[in-house]
């Protein structure tokens, strides 16, 4: 009954309906944004994710420590000469995720490996000093990382990620 007698002003009526429908759609879509945006990290979470400083002086050669940044475990390994040599003796091209050891550490601080301790397979935490490559072993699905944190064996597709960090002094780094 509404469409039947629209002969007098068909275009004006259609325009009105389209405009109202469009306004409702635009308003609805805009109103949706706060409901989605609220799921993102809130201001206090973002502020708490500010860079942290870590003192390396207590970490002896062959030891490693785990610190947390943005809720993620960061492994800081003080590698031995043997570990460094092993990492550098590998043919980079043969690796599943080719990357040289030099590219994963800061030059002049080659003994320090700083990696995010989250397996690139499905997010478990690998155990340090385990596995066949003198590096990390993930107990969940058996991924093995070498002493440079590179994936060598198992289902993980990529090397352990290196977080952004800089050396503030010889014995102190800032992560983030």
């Amino acid at each position: 009954m509404t469409t039947a007698s629209s002969a007098d002003h068909p275009t004006r009526r259609d325009f009105l309906f389209v405009a109202t429908g469009a306004a409702a759609a635009v308003g609805g879509a805009a109103a949706l944004w706060p409901f989605i945006s609220q799921m993102n990290p809130d201001a206090s979470t973002i502020a708490a994710g500010a860079p942290i400083e870590v003192d390396l002086s207590p970490v002896a050669e062959g030891q490693d420590i785990k610190v947390f940044w943005r809720g993620k475990p960061i492994y800081i390994s003080h590698r031995t000469k043997k570990q460094i040599d092993e990492a550098r003796a590998v043919n980079v091209a043969s690796l599943p995720d080719p990357q040289s050891d030099e590219a994963r550490v800061k030059s002049g601080h080659d003994q320090w490996l700083v990696v995010i301790g989250i397996c690139t397979h499905l997010g478990c935490i690998p155990i340090a000093h385990e596995g066949n490559y003198d590096g990390f072993f993930c107990p969940c699905h058996g991924s093995q990382y070498d002493s440079s944190g590179r994936i060598r064996q198992g289902p993980a597709p990529a090397n352990l990620a290196v977080p952004p960090y800089t050396f503030v002094s010889d014995t102190k780094i800032q992560i983030g």
Partner: peptide
């Protein structure tokens, strides 16, 4: 409810943090 903490020691503050820190928390 995604942001609120139902605990006597934390509830008041969690509501204020919703208003202050959550994106559009004041609006919601």
């Amino acid at each position: 409810a995604m942001h609120y903490t139902p605990h006597a020691d934390l509830a008041f503050k969690s509501v204020e943090l919703i208003v202050r820190d959550v994106n559009y928390g004041w609006l919601l």
